[in-house]
């Protein structure tokens, strides 16, 4: 997971070529509890760094999903829409949320690496 980057809003991001795959962290899923609904941004839509890019709902509450970087949505993961429980079981791999065509690579620089994120998640307790 060394090539993963993380946001303070508990999203992960993995870059391959000009495309970033984005999902929510295991830590986030543990805090949310059982996820029962997910809404993803449409393919072809543009999202802005730190802007809304979907919703996840657990049995407890609805939470916004934010995108850690800007770009155009090139793919979204219908498998998690059909079976949101996958987000709890495989959050940092199969249950990715959407893929972006990266707009500005420098936006990735401000994100945390795995170690930094783990420290952040532990300290923020949220």
């Amino acid at each position: 997971m060394s090539d993963f980057k993380f946001s303070k809003e508990h999203e992960w991001l993995k870059v391959e070529g000009g495309i970033a795959t984005i999902g929510i962290t295991k830590h986030a899923t543990e805090m949310l509890g059982d996820i029962v609904f997910v809404e993803l941004p449409d393919v072809g839509s543009s999202v802005e760094k730190d802007g809304n890019a979907g919703v996840v709902e657990s049995t407890k509450a609805a939470s916004d999903v934010y995108t850690p970087i800007s770009g155009e949505v090139v793919e979204n993961n219908q498998a998690i829409v059909d079976d949101p429980a996958k987000i709890n079981s495989d959050p940092e791999n199969g249950a990715w949320f959407f893929k972006l065509k990266i707009k500005d690579k420098t936006e990735i620089d401000s994100l945390m690496n795995k170690e930094e994120y783990e420290k952040f998640a532990k300290e923020s307790g949220s």
Partner: peptide, 8 residues
């Protein structure tokens, strides 16, 4: 990502 935090 989530804003749902409850403090004790």
């Amino acid at each position: 990502m989530y804003r749902w935090v409850e403090r004790v």
